[in-house]
Design a protein around this nucleic acid. Structure first.
Lengths: 135, 135
DNA sequence: GTCCTTGCAAAGCGTTTGCACAGAA
DNA sequence: TTCTGTGCAAACGCTTTGCAAGGAC
Protein backbone atom coordinates (compact mmCIF):
# COMPACT_ATOMS: atom_id res chain seq x y z
CA UNK A 1 0.00 0.00 0.00
CA UNK A 2 1.36 3.36 -0.98
CA UNK A 3 0.07 5.15 2.08
CA UNK A 4 -1.35 4.00 5.36
CA UNK A 5 -5.12 4.12 5.12
CA UNK A 6 -5.51 5.44 8.64
CA UNK A 7 -3.19 8.34 7.85
CA UNK A 8 -5.02 9.02 4.62
CA UNK A 9 -8.28 9.27 6.51
CA UNK A 10 -6.72 11.48 9.12
CA UNK A 11 -5.60 13.91 6.44
CA UNK A 12 -9.16 13.93 5.10
CA UNK A 13 -10.54 14.52 8.57
CA UNK A 14 -12.66 11.38 8.55
CA UNK A 15 -12.55 8.19 10.57
CA UNK A 16 -11.07 5.05 9.04
CA UNK A 17 -14.23 2.98 9.36
CA UNK A 18 -14.23 -0.65 8.35
CA UNK A 19 -16.59 0.11 5.47
CA UNK A 20 -14.31 2.80 4.07
CA UNK A 21 -11.27 0.63 4.55
CA UNK A 22 -12.79 -2.32 2.71
CA UNK A 23 -13.94 -0.16 -0.19
CA UNK A 24 -10.55 1.48 -0.40
CA UNK A 25 -8.69 -1.81 -0.33
CA UNK A 26 -11.03 -3.42 -2.81
CA UNK A 27 -10.39 -0.65 -5.33
CA UNK A 28 -6.70 -0.79 -4.59
CA UNK A 29 -6.46 -4.49 -5.30
CA UNK A 30 -8.88 -4.73 -8.19
CA UNK A 31 -7.10 -5.03 -11.49
CA UNK A 32 -9.76 -3.61 -13.72
CA UNK A 33 -11.10 -0.43 -12.14
CA UNK A 34 -14.37 -1.59 -10.62
CA UNK A 35 -17.79 0.00 -10.94
CA UNK A 36 -19.93 0.84 -7.92
CA UNK A 37 -21.93 -2.28 -8.65
CA UNK A 38 -18.81 -4.46 -8.67
CA UNK A 39 -17.61 -2.96 -5.40
CA UNK A 40 -21.00 -3.57 -3.85
CA UNK A 41 -21.26 -7.16 -5.07
CA UNK A 42 -17.77 -8.02 -3.92
CA UNK A 43 -18.18 -6.66 -0.42
CA UNK A 44 -21.77 -7.60 0.40
CA UNK A 45 -20.70 -11.00 1.73
CA UNK A 46 -18.23 -9.51 4.19
CA UNK A 47 -20.36 -6.47 4.98
CA UNK A 48 -23.90 -7.87 4.83
CA UNK A 49 -25.64 -4.58 5.58
CA UNK A 50 -23.72 -2.63 2.97
CA UNK A 51 -25.86 -0.53 0.66
CA UNK A 52 -25.08 0.94 -2.70
CA UNK A 53 -25.72 4.37 -1.25
CA UNK A 54 -22.81 3.81 1.09
CA UNK A 55 -20.61 2.71 -1.79
CA UNK A 56 -21.46 5.95 -3.57
CA UNK A 57 -21.07 8.00 -0.41
CA UNK A 58 -17.61 6.61 0.24
CA UNK A 59 -16.44 6.67 -3.34
CA UNK A 60 -17.59 10.27 -3.82
CA UNK A 61 -15.88 11.24 -0.59
CA UNK A 62 -12.67 9.72 -1.90
CA UNK A 63 -13.13 11.49 -5.22
CA UNK A 64 -13.55 14.86 -3.56
CA UNK A 65 -10.33 14.27 -1.68
CA UNK A 66 -8.44 13.27 -4.83
CA UNK A 67 -7.87 9.79 -3.53
CA UNK A 68 -9.68 8.28 -6.49
CA UNK A 69 -10.26 9.01 -10.15
CA UNK A 70 -13.49 8.22 -11.98
CA UNK A 71 -13.53 7.07 -15.58
CA UNK A 72 -16.71 7.28 -17.65
CA UNK A 73 -17.52 4.24 -19.74
CA UNK A 74 -19.73 3.74 -22.76
CA UNK A 75 -22.45 2.23 -20.52
CA UNK A 76 -22.76 5.55 -18.74
CA UNK A 77 -21.37 4.00 -15.63
CA UNK A 78 -18.25 5.03 -13.79
CA UNK A 79 -15.17 2.99 -13.01
CA UNK A 80 -12.91 3.92 -10.16
CA UNK A 81 -9.19 3.67 -9.60
CA UNK A 82 -6.79 4.91 -6.99
CA UNK A 83 -5.01 8.11 -7.86
CA UNK A 84 -1.45 6.96 -8.39
CA UNK A 85 1.60 7.52 -10.47
CA UNK A 86 0.78 8.34 -14.00
CA UNK A 87 0.09 5.54 -16.39
CA UNK A 88 -2.16 4.92 -19.36
CA UNK A 89 -5.27 2.84 -19.87
CA UNK A 90 -6.31 0.00 -22.04
CA UNK A 91 -10.09 -0.24 -22.46
CA UNK A 92 -11.58 -3.47 -23.70
CA UNK A 93 -14.28 -2.83 -26.28
CA UNK A 94 -15.95 -6.11 -25.46
CA UNK A 95 -16.12 -6.31 -21.66
CA UNK A 96 -15.57 -2.61 -20.93
CA UNK A 97 -12.93 -3.38 -18.33
CA UNK A 98 -10.08 -0.94 -17.94
CA UNK A 99 -6.48 -2.04 -17.47
CA UNK A 100 -3.52 -0.01 -16.32
CA UNK A 101 -0.64 -0.09 -18.77
CA UNK A 102 2.76 1.58 -18.66
CA UNK A 103 2.56 5.28 -19.31
CA UNK A 104 2.56 6.21 -22.98
CA UNK A 105 4.30 9.46 -23.66
CA UNK A 106 3.02 12.07 -26.04
CA UNK A 107 4.53 15.11 -27.63
CA UNK A 108 1.90 17.76 -27.69
CA UNK A 109 2.54 21.28 -28.74
CA UNK A 110 0.82 23.68 -26.37
CA UNK A 111 1.42 26.47 -28.87
CA UNK A 112 -1.06 24.96 -31.27
CA UNK A 113 -3.90 25.72 -28.83
CA UNK A 114 -2.63 28.87 -27.14
CA UNK A 115 -5.95 29.99 -25.65
CA UNK A 116 -6.51 26.83 -23.65
CA UNK A 117 -5.09 26.11 -20.22
CA UNK A 118 -3.88 22.52 -20.24
CA UNK A 119 -3.86 20.80 -16.86
CA UNK A 120 -3.24 17.20 -17.75
CA UNK A 121 -3.16 14.70 -20.57
CA UNK A 122 -4.42 11.18 -20.99
CA UNK A 123 -3.71 8.37 -23.42
CA UNK A 124 -6.11 5.49 -23.91
CA UNK A 125 -5.74 2.41 -26.05
CA UNK A 126 -8.80 0.48 -27.22
CA UNK A 127 -9.08 -3.12 -28.34
CA UNK A 128 -9.59 -6.59 -26.91
CA UNK A 129 -8.21 -7.75 -23.59
CA UNK A 130 -6.59 -11.18 -23.21
CA UNK A 131 -9.72 -12.71 -21.66
CA UNK A 132 -11.97 -11.52 -24.46
CA UNK A 133 -9.49 -12.58 -27.13
CA UNK A 134 -9.80 -16.19 -26.01
CA UNK A 135 -13.52 -16.23 -26.83
CA UNK B 1 -18.89 18.54 -46.22
CA UNK B 2 -16.59 15.59 -46.60
CA UNK B 3 -19.18 13.34 -48.19
CA UNK B 4 -22.52 13.97 -49.75
CA UNK B 5 -25.17 13.18 -47.16
CA UNK B 6 -27.45 11.53 -49.67
CA UNK B 7 -24.66 9.18 -50.73
CA UNK B 8 -23.84 8.44 -47.12
CA UNK B 9 -27.45 7.43 -46.50
CA UNK B 10 -27.52 5.34 -49.64
CA UNK B 11 -24.52 3.40 -48.42
CA UNK B 12 -26.33 2.83 -45.12
CA UNK B 13 -29.44 1.71 -46.94
CA UNK B 14 -31.62 4.40 -45.40
CA UNK B 15 -33.42 7.39 -46.83
CA UNK B 16 -31.92 10.88 -46.44
CA UNK B 17 -34.88 12.31 -44.56
CA UNK B 18 -34.93 15.94 -43.55
CA UNK B 19 -34.71 14.97 -39.88
CA UNK B 20 -31.62 12.87 -40.42
CA UNK B 21 -30.06 15.50 -42.60
CA UNK B 22 -30.60 18.27 -40.05
CA UNK B 23 -29.19 16.17 -37.21
CA UNK B 24 -26.20 15.18 -39.31
CA UNK B 25 -25.48 18.74 -40.37
CA UNK B 26 -25.94 20.09 -36.88
CA UNK B 27 -23.35 17.69 -35.51
CA UNK B 28 -21.11 18.41 -38.46
CA UNK B 29 -21.14 22.15 -37.84
CA UNK B 30 -21.15 22.16 -34.05
CA UNK B 31 -17.79 23.03 -32.64
CA UNK B 32 -18.07 21.34 -29.30
CA UNK B 33 -19.50 17.85 -29.84
CA UNK B 34 -23.14 18.28 -28.86
CA UNK B 35 -25.17 16.14 -26.50
CA UNK B 36 -28.55 14.69 -27.54
CA UNK B 37 -30.16 17.46 -25.50
CA UNK B 38 -28.23 20.15 -27.36
CA UNK B 39 -29.13 18.66 -30.73
CA UNK B 40 -32.76 18.52 -29.71
CA UNK B 41 -32.86 22.09 -28.41
CA UNK B 42 -31.13 23.47 -31.47
CA UNK B 43 -33.43 21.79 -33.97
CA UNK B 44 -36.81 22.00 -32.24
CA UNK B 45 -37.49 25.43 -33.76
CA UNK B 46 -36.91 24.23 -37.30
CA UNK B 47 -38.46 20.80 -36.72
CA UNK B 48 -41.27 21.52 -34.27
CA UNK B 49 -42.43 17.92 -33.93
CA UNK B 50 -38.95 16.56 -33.28
CA UNK B 51 -38.69 14.30 -30.25
CA UNK B 52 -35.68 13.26 -28.25
CA UNK B 53 -36.46 9.67 -29.15
CA UNK B 54 -35.86 10.55 -32.77
CA UNK B 55 -32.60 12.26 -31.91
CA UNK B 56 -31.48 9.09 -30.17
CA UNK B 57 -32.85 6.89 -32.97
CA UNK B 58 -30.94 8.82 -35.60
CA UNK B 59 -27.76 9.26 -33.60
CA UNK B 60 -27.65 5.56 -32.72
CA UNK B 61 -28.25 4.66 -36.33
CA UNK B 62 -25.30 6.84 -37.31
CA UNK B 63 -23.20 5.29 -34.56
CA UNK B 64 -23.93 1.77 -35.76
CA UNK B 65 -22.85 2.79 -39.23
CA UNK B 66 -19.61 4.35 -37.97
CA UNK B 67 -20.67 7.77 -39.14
CA UNK B 68 -20.41 9.14 -35.59
CA UNK B 69 -18.37 8.58 -32.48
CA UNK B 70 -19.77 8.92 -28.97
CA UNK B 71 -17.72 10.32 -26.11
CA UNK B 72 -18.73 9.71 -22.50
CA UNK B 73 -18.59 12.67 -20.18
CA UNK B 74 -18.40 12.97 -16.42
CA UNK B 75 -22.12 13.81 -16.31
CA UNK B 76 -22.90 10.38 -17.69
CA UNK B 77 -24.12 11.91 -20.88
CA UNK B 78 -22.76 11.32 -24.34
CA UNK B 79 -21.34 13.82 -26.77
CA UNK B 80 -21.31 13.09 -30.47
CA UNK B 81 -18.95 13.96 -33.27
CA UNK B 82 -18.57 13.00 -36.88
CA UNK B 83 -16.08 10.25 -37.55
CA UNK B 84 -13.34 12.06 -39.37
CA UNK B 85 -9.62 12.23 -39.82
CA UNK B 86 -7.84 11.51 -36.64
CA UNK B 87 -7.35 14.30 -34.19
CA UNK B 88 -7.23 14.73 -30.44
CA UNK B 89 -9.59 16.23 -27.92
CA UNK B 90 -9.49 19.00 -25.40
CA UNK B 91 -12.07 18.56 -22.64
CA UNK B 92 -12.98 21.58 -20.53
CA UNK B 93 -13.20 20.65 -16.87
CA UNK B 94 -15.57 23.51 -16.21
CA UNK B 95 -18.18 23.41 -18.99
CA UNK B 96 -17.57 19.82 -20.14
CA UNK B 97 -17.42 20.87 -23.77
CA UNK B 98 -15.10 18.96 -26.04
CA UNK B 99 -12.94 20.64 -28.65
CA UNK B 100 -11.09 19.09 -31.57
CA UNK B 101 -7.40 19.86 -31.57
CA UNK B 102 -4.62 18.81 -33.94
CA UNK B 103 -3.69 15.18 -33.55
CA UNK B 104 -1.16 14.54 -30.81
CA UNK B 105 1.15 11.70 -31.63
CA UNK B 106 2.18 9.05 -29.15
CA UNK B 107 4.85 6.45 -29.14
CA UNK B 108 3.42 3.38 -27.54
CA UNK B 109 5.19 0.11 -27.39
CA UNK B 110 2.81 -2.71 -28.23
CA UNK B 111 5.34 -5.21 -26.91
CA UNK B 112 4.77 -4.00 -23.38
CA UNK B 113 1.23 -5.40 -23.48
CA UNK B 114 1.66 -8.38 -25.78
CA UNK B 115 -1.58 -10.15 -24.88
CA UNK B 116 -3.83 -7.28 -25.84
CA UNK B 117 -5.11 -6.54 -29.31
CA UNK B 118 -4.83 -2.80 -29.85
CA UNK B 119 -7.30 -1.31 -32.31
CA UNK B 120 -6.92 2.39 -31.79
CA UNK B 121 -5.47 5.04 -29.54
CA UNK B 122 -6.78 8.31 -28.18
CA UNK B 123 -5.18 11.34 -26.59
CA UNK B 124 -7.16 13.78 -24.46
CA UNK B 125 -6.05 17.01 -22.87
CA UNK B 126 -7.94 18.42 -19.89
CA UNK B 127 -8.06 21.98 -18.62
CA UNK B 128 -9.97 25.19 -19.16
CA UNK B 129 -11.29 26.35 -22.51
CA UNK B 130 -10.94 29.99 -23.63
CA UNK B 131 -14.54 30.83 -22.69
CA UNK B 132 -14.22 29.46 -19.19
CA UNK B 133 -10.84 31.11 -18.67
CA UNK B 134 -12.45 34.54 -19.09
CA UNK B 135 -14.68 33.95 -16.09
C1' DG C 1 -50.87 -3.48 -49.38
C1' DT C 2 -45.78 -3.42 -46.96
C1' DC C 3 -41.93 -1.08 -45.19
C1' DC C 4 -39.78 2.81 -43.14
C1' DT C 5 -39.71 6.97 -40.25
C1' DT C 6 -41.16 9.33 -36.41
C1' DG C 7 -42.61 10.19 -31.64
C1' DC C 8 -45.43 9.56 -27.35
C1' DA C 9 -45.27 7.13 -23.11
C1' DA C 10 -43.16 4.18 -20.21
C1' DA C 11 -39.43 1.59 -18.55
C1' DG C 12 -34.54 0.93 -17.43
C1' DC C 13 -30.44 1.88 -15.12
C1' DG C 14 -26.68 4.29 -12.81
C1' DT C 15 -26.41 7.80 -9.57
C1' DT C 16 -27.90 11.28 -6.18
C1' DT C 17 -30.80 13.15 -2.57
C1' DG C 18 -33.81 13.29 1.61
C1' DC C 19 -34.07 11.73 5.69
C1' DA C 20 -33.77 8.91 9.68
C1' DC C 21 -31.57 5.72 12.75
C1' DA C 22 -27.66 4.01 15.37
C1' DG C 23 -23.27 4.52 17.38
C1' DA C 24 -19.24 7.30 18.81
C1' DA C 25 -17.34 11.18 21.23
C1' DT D 1 -26.11 15.82 23.68
C1' DT D 2 -24.04 16.57 19.17
C1' DC D 3 -21.69 14.80 15.30
C1' DT D 4 -20.54 11.12 12.16
C1' DG D 5 -21.40 6.98 9.46
C1' DT D 6 -24.67 4.22 7.31
C1' DG D 7 -28.63 2.82 4.52
C1' DC D 8 -33.64 2.63 3.04
C1' DA D 9 -36.66 4.78 -0.19
C1' DA D 10 -37.51 7.94 -3.45
C1' DA D 11 -36.13 11.05 -6.92
C1' DC D 12 -33.36 12.31 -10.85
C1' DG D 13 -31.41 12.38 -15.54
C1' DC D 14 -29.88 10.25 -19.62
C1' DT D 15 -31.02 6.68 -22.61
C1' DT D 16 -33.65 2.79 -24.44
C1' DT D 17 -37.79 0.17 -25.47
C1' DG D 18 -42.68 -0.82 -26.78
C1' DC D 19 -45.72 0.33 -29.71
C1' DA D 20 -48.67 2.86 -32.73
C1' DA D 21 -49.69 6.42 -36.20
C1' DG D 22 -48.52 8.50 -40.49
C1' DG D 23 -46.09 8.61 -44.84
C1' DA D 24 -43.40 6.68 -48.77
C1' DC D 25 -43.30 3.36 -52.34
Amino acid sequence: MARNFTDVCKSMGISPSITRRMIYEYIENAKTHPTAEEIYRSLIDTLPTLSKTTVYNVVNLFLENDLLIAINTSNNEKRYELMHDSHSHFICKNCNKIYDIPKISTSYNADSIPDFRIDNEEVNLYGLCPECMKK
